[in-house]
Write a protein that binds this DNA or RNA. Structure first.
Lengths: 352, 352
DNA sequence: TTCGCTTGCACAATCGATGGTGCAGAAACT
DNA sequence: AGTTTCTGCACCATCGATTGTGCAAGCGAA
C-alpha cells in the first residue's frame, strides 16, 4: 500500500480523504479547531487519518504563513568548550520544554561572522536569538532590531539590548582572594608572584582584571604594573605568553589567575613536555569551571558561572515587553580544587 | 526614510521598484539570471536596488518552494562533552564552507527523542542529517528513509545506512596495551589489576570490551571474568560503580580502562573528597581525549578519535549515490599522558 | 410562519520565492 | 519580403499551511 519514499501527506491529502476542506483539516491539526467550532467527530476523523498517514506539519509552510518558525537560536563563540557547551545543553532543555526547536550555531568571535550568522537565522524567521559571548553584541543587535527579532545578550553585555552576564567583578574578586589566601600566613604570596594571563579588551576581561588589581592591592598592599598578560581567547597565544614569561624570568609565577578555560589550555600546552615537578608548587585560579581542570596536579581554584541561572533569567527577559536595555549580573560560584560537580547532563535520564 | 522595524523587502517590492517582474527579480537574486537570459543591465539595476534596500531572501519561502532548506543537521547525544562538541565545531566548519547552514541539536541518547528530533528537523526540510552516537540509529534511519532524507551514522553504526566510526577495536587494543606496557617489567601488571569501567551494550562498547579482553589475554596471559564494570554513559552510575568496587575490595585497581570521558567524570566524582594519595599509583587509559584529562596527577593515556577524518569521510559518503550500507573505520590515535593537542578551535583566527 | 441566533464548516487570499512556458520584438537568414 | 532564430522578459501555477469571512442548515422563540 504505502510505497517507499512516498510524498509526505499534506492537509490537502487529508482533506480529500476526510471530505473536509483544507482549512478544516488545518484547524484540527494545529489545535485551533474548537475556536473554529469544528465538530468533535469531524476532528476525530481527521486526527485518525493524520495518524494513519503519518501526517506531519510542514514547518516551512507554517513558518512562511505565520512569519515565524518555532526555531529559537543560540549563537555561541565556539562549541568546543565546557562553558559554552553546557550553555548549549541548558538552552536546549529550556527551548524544548517550551515546545520549540533549538538551533545552536557558533560564530567564532568574529564580528562579521556574528552578523552574517544572525542574518541567516533571521532569514529562517527564527523567533528569538540568544547571543552568547559576542565580540560585537551591538552589531548583532542592529541586525536583529531591523528584523524585529527579539534577542538578548548573555555572557558579554551589549549597550542596546538586555544582557545577562556573570558578575565578573565579584567572581574575580573571590577568585583572587582565594588564590592569595591559599598560601596562608607561613609563606604568604607577594604581589609580584601573582599574574593574570588571558583575556582581551572585552567587558568580562576588563571587570576581572579590575577586580584582580583591586583585590591584590587590598590584600597584598601593592600591585605591580606588569601583572597582567593579555592573550586573547586563544590557547596558542596564551602558550606564547607563558613561553615569553618563562624565557624572560626563568620561571613561572607562584600563582596564576587565568582568565578562562581556553587560556588554561594554553597553560597545558606550556606544561606539555616540561617536567611535572616544574609545576608542583603552582597555585592556579581559573575563571571557568572544567571538571578535569579541577583535578590537575596542583591546586586549581575555579569559578563556575551559573549557566542555569543565566539562561533562566534570559528567557524571562526575552519574553517581557521591551524596556531600556539593562544588564543583569548573575553571581558565579567559587569552586575549590578537586571538585567534580554535576552538570546539565545529570538531569538527563541515567542510562545504563 | 527607512522607518524602524519596517517589513523586510521582498522580491515583489524590488519588482515594483525596478519595473521588472517578480520572477526576473528572483532569478537575478538567486543567480540563475544568465540561464534565464536576463540582460546584464537589468540584473545590475536589481542588484543595486537589493543592496540599497537590504534585501535578504526569505529562506522559508525558498525552502517551501524548493522543498529543501539549506539547513544541514547534526544530531548529538549531548553537547556538554569535548568529543561531541569538537564534532560540532568541525561539522560547522564543513557545512559553512559549503554555503549551507549548520544546525546542531542533541537528543539525549533517548531513542524516542532521537526519532522525534529527526522528525522535527525533517519538518523543516533539512537537506542532510548527520546522526552522531545515536542509541537507535536504525530507528532514526526509518524516519529519514520515509522522508527521503540523506543521512549517515557517525560514532555508532547502524545497519541501514552508511556509518563512519572510530576503529574501536584497534583503539582499545592500543590503549589496553599501552596501559599494560606502562608498568614495564619491574613490577608488571597482573590480570586482576586492570579493570574496565563504563560502556553499555552499544557497538563501540562491545568492540572496546572485546579488544580489552583479547589484549589482556594476549599480554597478560589471563583475563578474569569480572574485569568489566558496565556503567553506561553516566558519571553518576560510574561513580556508584567505583564506590561499589571500593566498598567490596577496599581499594581501586592499579590500572583502569575507562570507556569514555563521561565515565571518567565518574572517576573524578569518586576522587572528590578522597585524598589525592589514594590515586598516586593509579594508571588510567581513557577512550576519549580531553586536554585537561591528560594532565591529571596520575598517568592518563588517552585515545583521540579522529573527528576531522570522520566528518570528512561522512561528507564524502552522504553525497554519493546510495549503495548497500557499509561501515567505515577511522583509526584513532593514542595520546600519551600530559599532551595538549590542537583542536578545531586552533583553525580559527587567533584573536588577541 | 418568520426572524434571529447558533453551529459547522467551506472559500479564497496570503506568506515569498521558484521555474516551466509562452510571447513580443529584434536580428539573422533565404 | 517572408521565415526562422534569438533575446529578454512576463505570466502564472506551485510549494503547504493559516486565517478572515461568508453562508447554509438547524433550532428556538415570537
Amino acid at each position: 500500500m504505502d510505497q517507499r519514499v512516498k510524498k509526505k501527506a499534506t492537509i490537502y491529502d487529508l482533506s480529500l480523504l476526510s471530505g473536509s476542506s483544507p482549512s478544516t483539516v488545518s484547524a484540527v491539526l494545529n489545535g485551533t479547531w474548537r475556536k473554529r467550532r469544528i465538530k468533535e467527530s469531524t476532528a476525530q476523523t481527521i486526527l485518525g487519518l493524520a495518524e494513519l498517514h503519518q501526517y506531519t506539519t510542514n514547518l516551512q509552510a507554517r513558518g512562511l504563513r505565520r512569519s515565524r518558525s518555532g526555531l529559537v537560536g543560540l549563537m555561541l563563540p565556539v562549541h568546543d568548550n565546557r562553558y559554552f557547551s553546557s550553555m548549549a545543553q541548558t538552552f536546549e532543555g529550556h527551548v524544548r520544554s517550551r515546545g520549540q526547536c533549538p538551533v545552536v550555531v557558533s560564530a567564532s568571535r568574529d564580528p562579521e561572522e556574528e552578523r552574517r550568522t544572525a542574518e541567516t537565522l533571521i532569514s529562517y524567521s527564527i523567533d528569538q536569538l540568544f547571543i552568547v559571548g559576542a565580540t560585537d553584541p551591538d552589531g548583532v543587535h542592529e541586525v536583529c532590531e531591523l528584523a524585529g527579532l527579539r534577542h538578548i545578550n548573555i555572557d558579554l553585555p551589549g549597550a542596546k539590548a538586555h544582557s545577562v552576564i556573570s558578575d565578573n567583578y565579584q567572581g574575580a574578586r573571590m577568585l583572587t582572594e582565594a588564590i592569595i589566601r591559599h598560601f596562608g600566613n607561613d609563606d604568604p604570596l607577594r604581589p609580584d608572584e601573582l599574574f593574570l594571563f588571558g583575556g582581551r579588551n572585552d567587558h568580562a576581561s576588563r571587570e576581572r582584571i579590575a577586580a584582580f588589581h583591586a583585590t591584590k592591592k587590598a590584600l597584598l598592599g601593592a600591585d605591580p604594573e606588569d601583572g597582567v598578560q593579555s592573550s586573547g581567547y586563544s590557547p596558542d597565544i596564551t602558550l606564547r605568553a607563558f613561553e615569553a614569561f618563562y624565557q624572560c624570568r626563568g620561571k613561572l609565577p607562584r600563582a596564576l589567575f587565568i582568565n578562562s578555560s581556553i587560556n588554561m589550555e594554553g597553560l597545558l600546552r606550556f606544561m606539555a613536555g616540561r617536567p611535572a615537578e616544574m609545576f608542583s608548587e603552582l597555585v592556579v585560579g581559573c575563571y571557568d569551571y572544567d571538571p578535569f581542570g579541577s583535578f590537575l596536579p596542583f591546586p586549581v581554584i575555579m569559578v563556575r558561572q551559573n549557566v542555569e541561572a543565566m539562561i533562566t533569567k534570559a528567557f524571562e527577559l526575552i519574553d517581557e515587553p521591551p524596556t531600556a536595555p539593562q544588564t543583569f549580573l548573575i553571581a558565579p560560584e567559587l569552586i575549590q580544587p578537586r571538585s567534580a560537580l554535576k552538570g546539565p547532563l545529570d538531569t538527563l535520564k541515567d542510562i545504563e
